[in-house]
Amino acid sequence: MPSAVAGPEIERLIQLLARLPGLGPRSARRAVLHLIKKRDALMTPLSSALQVAIDKVQVCKTCGNIDTQNPCTVCTDPRRDQSTIVVVADVADLWALERANASSGLYHVLGGTLSPLDGVGPQDLTIDALVARAHDDRVSEIILALNATVDGQTTAHYITDLLQDANVKVTRLAHGVPVGGELDYLDEGTLAAAVRQRTLF
């Protein structure tokens, strides 16, 4: 095993950065070296930003989004369509939909999908809170924007069953050919679903 080339404080920083997604030990070492070289321009502001985030970031009590205010910016935005709730599995999905400017409605973050393999059951997700929100008279549509996986769609069907007695329209995202997708390379199940759900041209 190679011996440490720097003091324990720097090695500790490298170890912590190496735990981040997309970074391994080598890239973490490069990042730390870069931070040290840009101590005033990068390291100090980064440290302050991290501290502020630690102090202020919280989970929205309404939708489960992550923000520095509670309820979050999305929930408190008066321009948002209060009659539509987009259900997503994770905050990353919410941010992806917001980047795409795909919906002007509100969101609900479940915190994952049902997964017997990982031992995730309905009690581990915020499904009860969603059902309560769906019974609000102002809500008329629930869009289930969950992954096109067996776990994701099991969750979608489970939620749909629970919303039977709520006075809302339950919709889901379309399945089919992605932009840039070549038919020759698509799996046959996706192709079959795309043909089944074809639309007028």
């Binding site: 099991t154 399945h175 679903a193």
Partner: peptide
């Protein structure tokens, strides 16, 4: 046989796949 995409829209099929997989486990 990639049948998963074909079952996603049908509630009994998607529940069934999940249930059978958890039983086989």
């Amino acid at each position: 046989t990639l049948r998963a995409a074909g079952v996603l829209t049908s509630s009994h099929a998607v529940y069934g796949v999940t249930h059978l997989a958890s039983l086989a486990r």
